[in-house]
């Protein structure tokens, strides 16, 4: 664990930066403005066309994956300190980073396979 801690911390801070800079605008559009009809949601054809650009796929990969690692790292410590689960350190670490890995793998798989 000790050897990969710097890498996990790097993923945590990179993910935190991505989430801070980009999540508010994506969330207010996709989660509120489009469903509430303030603005018109982009059509399937338009988004599909966007997805043909490799840079957009790379963007989505970074947008989804890094914040998941940010969550894994921060939530791990929330569980240790907040709920006083220090004795479950390893189990919690495996579960948190495991979920982040799974999400990353799913994102990569989907982005790779979209025609």
């Amino acid at each position: 664990m000790g050897r990969i801690t710097p890498l996990l911390w790097l993923l945590f801070s990179a993910g935190g930066t991505v989430a801070a800079l980009l999540f508010p605008v994506h969330l207010v559009l996709t989660g509120l403005a489009f469903p509430l009809g303030w603005l018109e949601a982009p059509s399937y054809e338009f988004l599909h066309r966007l997805l043909t650009h490799p840079m957009i796929r790379l963007y989505l990969f970074v947008l989804i994956s890094l914040p998941l690692f940010h969550w894994a790292h921060r939530f791990r410590y929330t569980l240790y300190d907040g709920l006083q689960l220090k004795h479950l350190t390893e189990l919690i670490a495996v579960l948190c980073y495991g979920v982040a890995f799974l999400g990353t793998a799913m994102t990569a798989y989907l982005l790779w396979n979209i025609p």
């Binding site: 947008l63 989804i64 969550w71 799913m106 989907l110 982005l111």
Partner: peptide, 22 residues
Amino acid sequence: ELTSVFVAFFAVVYLWQLRALA
């Protein structure tokens, strides 16, 4: 510290949208 839960929530929503688009 709890903001991370909502960060993960939205990452999953976006993953879900990606799956729908696929």
